[in-house]
Design a protein around this nucleic acid. Sequence first.
DNA 1: TCTGCAAGTATACAAAAGTATACTGATATA
DNA 2: TATATCAGTATACTTTTGTATACTTGCAGA
Lengths: 130, 130
Amino acid sequence: MKDISIEQAIKDEQINLKDIKSCPVQFVLAVNDALNVLTGKWKLPIIGALLFKSMRFSEMKKTIPKITSRMLSKELKELELNGVVKRVVDDTTPVTITYQLTDSGMSLNGVLDKILEWGLGHRNEFFSQA
Amino acid sequence: MKDISIEQAIKDEQINLKDIKSCPVQFVLAVNDALNVLTGKWKLPIIGALLFKSMRFSEMKKTIPKITSRMLSKELKELELNGVVKRVVDDTTPVTITYQLTDSGMSLNGVLDKILEWGLGHRNEFFSQA
DNA sequence: TCTGCAAGTATACAAAAGTATACTGATATA
DNA sequence: TATATCAGTATACTTTTGTATACTTGCAGA
């Protein structure tokens, strides 16, 4: 068997996603990446805001209810470090700083759709039997 | 406009998932449900184990490296409360207790696939440019 | 009777995540 | 000159999460 990447193997359907949930390190790492990007009290509101449109720090503070400067700053740094958010410095006077999602960040939209779908289905099932 | 459920509206494509990420309470709650079920250090290992097969407490302890009784117990209770895990008491002597995923729990498989997919794509993009 | 498993509980502690509040330094506007 | 905005930092504190370790009750087998 040729030595190809996991991603290629998946594309080629040599590996079927459903059958390997309990498996290799790379997969665990990938899932963890995704969950780290999504968890904590403020990640979702921040990503949600930026999915709507790119914004400046102060605008985000107004948009996201109850968030403090400290948390917004902290979370934005983390998201930037994880390659989900881009901090763009525009060379006006005074400088304008804009936060926007990277391509990866944008593609979280699909993940969130799936999560939302599950959540709605789950609530239906759960509350109908309870 | 008739008064129909949100889920129906989505099915009927009167609402498009992409356009309402920053919107109604029900949606925020649903996404939160899903994330609560997935976050914390041990939720994923536990769900992963149970996706593989139903298990008893002691078997889970052996299967999941480093988890303590306290954490396993705590997390299982929470997952049960959230309708993701079922605790089945089998009336043998002595009684046998088995943990298994509910239908909702099983359907997390699809969500995890999507998350995994994003994680792999993200790692690719991220490490190729760094 | 002694040992050990099963399915946890109890207590104490450490570390991570989040909150509250005040402050900066540079620029812009009244 | 006084005030306000922007893009954050700094410090101290509380809450939530997770760890370590020991213990419990009921039964089974040697």
